[in-house]
């Protein structure tokens, strides 16, 4: 199974979580859908689609919570016949991150994922670096940064 991180501090917490919770796929991303680390994906397209969809679901549930005048929902779980999807946010020094987990119902369970997600959230918070002064985004840097991220995630 491939496990890769664009930001290395995310790797150890994610690997620990995958082992303990028996997760099949994991994405750690920003709330805008920028991937920081992934486990189990083999194709760049799958990662980008999953990140975009996960970020969109989080944005939708945040908006529902806002309309209900409630704080954002802690986590979302959706179970199918053989797999479950667990989506939750983690506040860190790097900003609010979103974690998407896909688990096999034969191997893991919502209880296990919830249990070890608590540890993952604590580990990510502890490992996240203090925020830096934001750089100006240049079109010239964008392609290079995107290329670097894909290289880090898929080793190309």
């Amino acid at each position: 199974m491939t496990t890769r991180a664009v930001e290395p501090w995310t790797l150890e917490p994610m690997v620990g979580f995958v082992q303990e919770a028996g997760a099949r796929l994991v994405l750690v991303m920003t709330s805008a859908g920028q991937v920081l680390a992934q486990h189990g994906f083999s194709r760049a397209m799958d990662v980008m689609s999953a990140a975009a969809l996960g970020a969109a679901i989080m944005a939708s549930t945040d908006e529902i919570a806002r309309q209900l005048d409630q704080p954002p929902f802690a986590a979302l779980n959706h179970q199918g016949e053989r797999h479950g999807i667990f989506l939750a946010a983690v506040p860190t020094n790097r900003g609010r991150l979103v974690v998407l987990v896909v688990y096999d119902l034969d191997v893991s369970s919502l209880g296990l994922v919830q249990l070890f997600f608590g540890q993952l959230a604590a580990d990510l918070r502890a490992a996240s670096p203090k925020p830096e002064v934001p750089k100006q985004v240049l079109a010239a840097d964008f392609e290079r940064d995107l290329g670097n991220s894909l290289n880090a995630l898929f080793g190309r």
């Binding site: 119902l105 369970s109 919502l110 209880g111 296990l112 919830q114 249990l115």
Partner: peptide, 21 residues
């Protein structure tokens, strides 16, 4: 299937959700 707590009567100090999962 899920390892979630439906009902519990536990003494203090026992982590119900962790034991259940």
């Amino acid at each position: 299937d899920d390892g979630l707590v439906v009902a519990e009567q536990l003494m203090e100090g026992i982590k119900g959700p962790a034991v259940a999962a």
